[in-house]
Design a protein around this nucleic acid. Structure first.
Lengths: 321, 321
DNA sequence: CGCTCAATTTGACTTTTGTCGAGAGCCGTG
DNA sequence: CACGGCTCTCGACAAAAGTCAAATTGAGCG
């Protein structure tokens, strides 16, 4: 991993500018290049993670509602993205926040499990670059051969690329047509190793999917809308890493789940920090299910979702007392 | 630790500017304040660690000499500050580098031991601010009531302040007049707790002192120049956290050491990451002693010192073979 | 050896940011 | 309640950074 001569200059420019606080023209003089080049090198330095600029996300955890949610739901930390806000584009706010939170939670040497979905891909897409060479990003579930840009392997790879980390992908269909084949494939060394390595992760990033016709599982052809509706009647409450969970956050006993190649929920729960990000308000029930199942320790949601969760929790404790 | 209303604005401005990439005038519009105020808030955000800008120090580890030194000395990582350099002020370069390396090595939740000396204080002084609330900085050794600005408690506190961390000081003289009193004081609960907590640190920061009349121990009156010279004849090779070590990096068996209130060398060695920073070329022998005693795992030195260390190591292995 | 093509570098221009002193608001005090 | 002293805020100017098209370099190739 020796530095290439071109990168050498980027490093030097970044060092003089950011660590020593020289002006761009001073850097230019020192390095005997033009100031315009310095400006360009500095941009590259920021883009490649040689220079890291991070903003504290305290603003969003350090808030009464967030604190109450933590207590009510028994989570380690909750971040609430304001929606009324002073933010120009509220729709990306959750993703921007989630990306910052994610980077704040990553430690050197971590092994990170990443699932798949529009939310995760959006986060990957706006995440800033970092220099975390000893980090490994592993894919949590199999692929669906759909024309979407947010395939599991893409999410994993994109995040790995942004962090300058190693990406560990595996190529298997998310869901197979028979349980037998799924079992056989899971027993394959390449796949088995990947799946068994998931419990060793230090951090997980995922969202939760809804059980409806809009689900990626339907859109990508893993299930038909009718099958989805049937599962719903059987008690399906949400989708996590490609698997169907019931209202208690347990894997639903159904043929589909048995045909899936993905991280077992027990492995996910074995991961110390589980960051769940939910963008859509419509995912209230799926989120409740995921929380009930202990599938998240850290949560990023919007203000209205936070409100609903809090009301729900309040009602629950009231009923109990 | 609720955010005060004034800080609220700083956070918001920083978030919009750094996380969302808005321009200052856009931020000003959103927050309904003037752009000048935004600029001021952003400066405060940087100064208080709400926003963190860090530069990779790869440039200085990723270098043939640094790699060879790591191998030769069996260290985890070595950083070499160039002296010929493109840097405007070479004298602060080592400290700037050390501060960056230090910040790179700190993890959330760490307990950090800090010793004392001009080098450490210089590092503290130029270190940028960070937002590490769950970090604790503990003082490794007792105080000397000297009029210097780099008293142990000052070094500890300043670093704690910069990191927004908790500082854990203890107030005892570094050295007492009798061994008996030192023993009694070490047995005091306040002191004992502090000293026994040192082994639990995750990271240590210190330099090494020379055994000569220029030593702080002499300047601060802990020892006279004559006593120092005598210790030198007895085999003293360096000073670490206020204690005298011999050429093997072991605590020298002398009255002075028995009268000192400081971290035991064994406790220091129990710390996983031990960052040693040496600025002066004259500290070659003390540094060799410290390395021999396994008192550092991570090392920051200047190029000429690195050169000498490498030559020394080369000569040693040659003689061995 | 000279040509092309792509990547890099630069100077000149525009936009964005930093700064400073003036003024406004705010408190405790006499 | 008027008065200093204090901090906070703003407008205007100066300084610094970003950008872009043109120029230069350098590598690959016929």
């Amino acid at each position: 991993m020796a530095i290439r001569p071109a990168e050498q200059l980027i490093h030097k420019a970044a060092w003089l500018y950011y660590a020593h606080g020289l002006r761009q023209d001073e850097v230019a003089t020192q390095l005997k290049i033009s100031r315009a080049s310095v400006a360009m090198y500095l941009r590259k330095a920021r883009e490649t993670g040689i220079v890291n600029i991070s903003t504290s996300t305290q603003l969003f955890t350090d808030d009464i509602m967030a604190r109450r949610l933590e207590d009510a739901l028994g989570l380690d930390a909750v971040w609430i993205a304001p929606e009324n806000g002073y933010v120009p584009d509220p729709s990306t706010e959750i993703a921007v926040l989630a990306a910052s939170v994610f980077l704040e939670l990553v430690k050197k040497g971590d092994r990170i499990g990443v699932a798949w979905g529009r939310t995760v891909y959006t986060i990957a897409d706006i995440m800033s670059y970092a220099d975390l060479q000893d980090v490994t990003v592993v894919q949590l579930c199999g692929n669906l051969g759909a024309p979407y840009s947010y395939r599991p392997d893409q999410c994993t790879m994109e995040i790995a690329r942004r962090l300058n980390a190693k990406g560990l992908n595996f190529y298997a269909p998310l869901v197979l047509s028979t349980e037998e084949l799924a079992r056989a494939l899971r027993a394959e060394p390449v796949i088995r190793e990947q799946l068994s390595g998931i419990g060793d992760c230090d951090l997980a990033l995922y969202s939760v999917g809804a059980v409806d016709a809009e689900s990626h599982l339907v859109k990508c052809g893993a299930l038909t809308a009718d099958e989805m509706a049937a599962l719903r009647r059987q008690g399906a409450a949400g989708v996590i890493a490609g698997q169907i969970i019931d209202a208690d956050g347990k894997a639903l006993a159904c043929s589909y789940n048995r045909r899936v190649i993905s991280a077992e929920l027990a492995s996910l729960r074995a991961i110390a920090r589980r960051l769940m990000v939910v963008q859509e308000d419509s995912k209230f029930e799926p989120l409740l299910a995921a929380i009930a199942g202990g599938l998240c320790t850290h949560l990023v949601v919007g203000a209205s979702m936070a409100q609903r969760l809090l009301e729900h929790a309040g009602a629950a404790t009231e009923k109990a007392s």
